[in-house]
Structures are given as C-alpha cells and as structure tokens.
Amino acid sequence: MARTITMEVLRYRPEQDAGPVFQTYEVPFTDDMSVLQGLLHIKDELDETLSFRWSCRMAICGSCGMMINGKPALSCKTFLRDLAPGPVRIEALNHFPIERDLVVVMEDFIDKLERIQPYIIPKEPRTLEQGEYLQTPAQLEKYEQFSSCINCLLCYAACPQYGLNPDFVGPGALALLHRYNADSRDGGAAQRMELVAAEEGVFNCTAVGYCSEVCPKHVDPANAVNQNKTTAAADYFLGFLKPKGSRT
C-alpha cells in the first residue's frame, strides 16, 4: 500500500473565486515522486480543473517553479519523500500576479528580458570570411555561471525588493545582462549601463542574497547585481570627469 501525503494547493479561478483559497488533496506517493508528479496525479486522477505549468520534468525548462512550503523551488526537483509526513503547501510563485491557480503572469519579466539586450553586441564586427570569435577558457569562465539561467523566476519570487517595487529589473534579468557584459566577445556594456544605473536598476538591491540561495542552477544573481553596482558607481563618478554632454 502506497503512503499518502496531504497537498494543500492554492487555487484561484478568476471566474468564480474572489481571491486565492487553499484546496486539500490526499495524494498517494512513492519515493521516486516529485512534487510535480504529485500535482500531475491530482490533475489526472482527482481534479482536472487544477492549472499549473510544466514541461521537461528534469530541471532544465524552468516552467514548474512554485512556492513549496513557502520557499521558491522547481516542483520537478523537489521530492515528496523529503516533505513527508506533510502537509505540503503549494502556492504560485511569490511577487507575480496569479493568472490562475499556480500559473503566474510573467509578461513583466519578458519585457525586462528584452530591455537588457540579451544577445552579444559584437565588440568588433567580423565577416564570415574572418571566421569565428575566439575565446580562451579563462574568458569563458568569467560569464559561464551566469549563462546557466533557465528563466525559472525563482530568484524573483525570492527577491523582496522586486515584490515591493515591480519596476526593479530584478535578479534574473540582471544576471543575464551581466552574462553578456562579461563576455569577451561583447561590447554592449556601455549601452546596457543606462538600464543598470537607472532608478529601475541595480541600486534597488539591498543584498538580501536569497535569490542566490534558491537558484537551481547556481547562477548567483546577487553577485551579478552587486558587481554591477560597483561598475555603475564607477561610471557615475567618472561621468563627472568627462566633458559635459558626453554622459549617457
């Protein structure tokens, strides 16, 4: 006989609920079952109206982030056996508006992703004939960890400053911005500085550091944000030395 665990899932159905409410399900589970599989059991066997996002089941697509017992986590990477005897409390990711049940509205993040110009802006344009851009392992190491981001938004759900002020560009997008700034092939740091140094930029961060704790890919967004505080401050003070009108 399989063990069971109580899953308390935050429901929000805009057509019938005034606000979110918890609904409780008794879910049979085995040692190899993730929280995501528990939710899939609910959807397949108990209640097909439950909505949540998921795709790869192996911590690479970044779709299934949610609050599990109050902490942001990927539900595919969190196992029910570790949460037994329960109950397990599941909520939509903090700091995002809830679209429905565990599905959040993420347009704001997509906008921010566009604003950081998340692509290599070549330092020196090369033609095909000139061949590829070369990079040493040491140059790769400068940005590699920041390129592991899977846009799962756990860091945003971990960032009280984003929750308090949604204009803040936030940990994930700034870590990705840093990934491009730190790439030896990229020359776009100066044009990204406008956003880094803006009122929406890095100085909203108060170094809580929880973003880096919850990141499933060890990106360390807090480090990316704080490195850019230093560069933005240097740019700010050096700006006074430049002739008038040349400041960005």
Partner: peptide
C-alpha cells in the same frame, strides 16, 4: 475573464527565516 490577482506584501519578512 482574466483577472490577475496581486498578493499583498505586508509582513513578508516574517514568513521566511532567511528574511
């Protein structure tokens, strides 16, 4: 029928030992 629900931030720092 979209009616995104924004949760309040009040007392956020009491809800997690890290905070």
């Amino acid at each position: 029928k979209r009616r995104p629900y924004v949760r309040p931030m009040a007392g956020w720092w009491r809800k997690n030992p890290f905070f």
